[in-house]
């Protein structure tokens, strides 16, 4: 098929709708005015600078970063073995196991957050940060399993047998020939998990405490109190961070084919 004029028109509108709002935020964040407006009133860096001076933003950014990294790492520690078991062993109840580890993606996040608050945090006096860590790990687990499973399916299992016949132990074979060949998938799962956790709102909504707030929740709270462009500036900065991560990931592992 050859691309024709209507195709280009459709694609132009699609890109405008999907990416356009992002340019609007960027423009709004350089406004000199004190309320949100477009086209922006004048040009200044003051809102971008303000983002870095709001203390709660610093704390919540640090918490979100920490959570995203630690929870994704934990999800991979749990998710890689279960993916491996599901793809390489003939297990009874395999589908049940897959449904259980994938269920956090199907149950609405706000329900998860509320359930954890009421039945883990309140009765057991669990630390809020710990509960956030557990919730985010559960949330990232389905993504980790999905992406890692897909890479394992694409890798022939006879190379493990070949390694064993050449004298390697089974565990040794996993680290010597499986892991190096699913590196791309694991990295993609990490990025996808990181982004999912970092941007997560509904699960974290109820899991906040004094001084413990993730960045997106903090932004929502700030927006309710103040109508200035600093949230636009922060949004733009976060968007740039995501674009940077995705761009690098795309360069090295062809990220979009894993999504």
């Amino acid at each position: 098929m050859k691309a024709r004029l209507p195709s280009y028109a459709v694609l132009t509108l699609l890109v405008l709708f999907l990416v356009g709002p992002f340019f609007v935020i960027v423009a709004a964040s350089f406004s000199a005015g004190s309320t949100l407006a477009f086209p922006p009133q004048g040009f200044s860096f003051k809102w971008v600078e303000k983002v870095f001076t709001v203390e709660s933003f610093q704390a919540s950014f640090a918490l979100s970063m920490f959570l995203a990294i630690v929870a994704t790492f934990a999800a991979l520690v749990l998710g890689v073995p279960v993916s491996y078991a599901l793809s390489r062993y003939r297990l009874p109840l395999a589908e049940t196991v897959r449904t259980i580890v994938s269920s956090p993606i199907i149950v609405p996040g706000i329900v998860v957050g509320l359930a954890l608050l009421r039945y883990l945090v309140v009765p057991f006096g669990m630390d809020i940060t710990l509960s956030l860590f557990l919730a985010h790990t559960a949330l990232v687990l389905p993504y980790a399993v999905r992406v890692v499973s897909a890479s394992l399916e694409n890798l022939r299992s006879d190379i493990e047998e070949a390694a064993v016949l050449l004298g390697s132990s089974r565990i040794g074979a996993f680290f010597r020939v499986v892991l190096p060949n699913i590196r791309g998938g694991i990295l993609a799962a990490f990025i996808l998990g990181f982004v999912t956790s970092f941007n997560q709102v509904p699960v974290s909504l109820f899991l906040t405490g004094p001084g413990v707030r993730t960045l997106p929740i903090d932004m929502l709270g700030y927006m309710e109190r103040t109508y200035d462009p600093s949230v636009a500036a922060l949004s733009a900065l976060l968007a740039f961070m995501s674009i940077g991560i995705v761009f690098i990931a795309e360069r090295f592992i062809g990220f979009s084919r894993y999504v």
Partner: peptide
């Protein structure tokens, strides 16, 4: 794919700017 990686808070916020009283 890219927008999927950007914070939904940021993406939704943009519509405040576009649809607001003084928006585009």
């Amino acid at each position: 794919v890219l927008p999927l990686m950007i914070s939904p808070v940021a993406r939704t916020y943009a519509w405040l700017v576009i649809l607001g009283r003084t928006g585009i």
